[in-house]
Amino acid sequence: MDIIEILFTASFWAAAIRIATPLILATMGELICERAGVLNLGIEGIMVVGAFAGWMAVYSGTGLWAGVAVAFIVGMAFGLLHSTLTVPFGLSQHVVGLGVTLLATSATYYAYRLALPEVTSPPKIAAFQPYEIPILSDIPFIGEALFSQTPFTYFAFLLVLAVAVVLYRTPLGLAVRAVGENPSAVAAQGLSVTAIRMGAVIVGSGFMAMGGAFLTMSAFDSFFFEMVNGRGWICIALVVFGSWRPGKALLGAILFAAFDALQIRVQQTEIGAEIPYQIFLMMPYILSILALVVMSRRAEVPAALMVPFNKGER
C-alpha cells in the first residue's frame, strides 16, 4: 500500500491515538511539574512503577479503574520523594530525577521478582477493551479513529482538557504558573511556594504513573521489563515541543504517535522490508531530538524552571 493511502485510513489514526495515549498522560504530568518550575527526570522510572503497580493490582483482584488509582497513588508517592528533595531542600533536579528513575525502576524489578518468583512469562490480565461511544462512533472515519478506543484513552483526552482549564482558568492554576515564572512574587502574596511546587510535582508524578499503567492495562495486558523503553524521555521532549502548553503538547504527542504508527506500517511494505528494522525503531528518538532542535529557540521556557527557591536568599 502507498504511504499516502495509509494516512487516509481510519485504522491508521486509531493506532496513532492508541500509541499517543501513554505519551499524552505522562506528558501532562511532566508539563504540570515544569510549569511549577520543577524538571522531573523521575518520569521514566515513575512510568515503569506505574505500569507494574496498576497491572499487579488488577492481577491481585481489583477492578481496572481501581488499578489505575493504585498506579496514580504509587506515582504520587515517588512524586513526594522527588519534590521533598528538590523543593524544600533545593537539590539538583537532574541528579534527584535520575536517582528517582533508578530507584523506581529497580524497586519495580525487585517487587516483580518477589511477587512472581518462578514465572518465565508474566501472567495476563483482562485489560481495558475498546468501547464504541454511542452516536459518535457512527461518524465516518472520525468515529473509528477517535471514538472506538478504550475508556482509558478517553480519560487521557479529558485529562488534557482538565489540565488546560485548571492551569488557565482557576486561581490554583495561576498559582502553579506563577511559581514557575516568578516565585518571589508568589511568596510576597503570602502563598507558600514550597507547597504549590510540591503539590504540582506530586500530582504530575501520579499522571506519569498512569501513562505507564496504560501500557500494561490497555495497550498490552501484561508487564515486561524494558516496556517503557525511553517513552519518559520522549515525553520530556514533547513538553518542550508543545511550548509548555497542554493543547500543543497533545497535538505533539499525536503527531509523534502518527509517525510511530507510520513507521510500523512502512516496515511491513516491500521497500520497508529491505531496510534494517533498527532504522525504524530509531525514528522516535531521532524525531524527538529534531523536535527539540527546531523548538528550543522559540520555546517560552518557564522563567524559574530548575531554579530552587529559598527564602533565606533574597
Binding site: 527526570l41 537532574h94 523503553n229 525511553g230 520522549i234 521532549a237 528518538y285 524527538s288 527539540l292
Partner: peptide, 10 residues
C-alpha cells in the same frame, strides 16, 4: 540531558 539520554537508545 534529553539529547544524551535519547542518544543511548539510538
Amino acid at each position: 540531558v534529553v539529547t544524551t539520554l535519547l542518544f543511548n537508545f539510538i
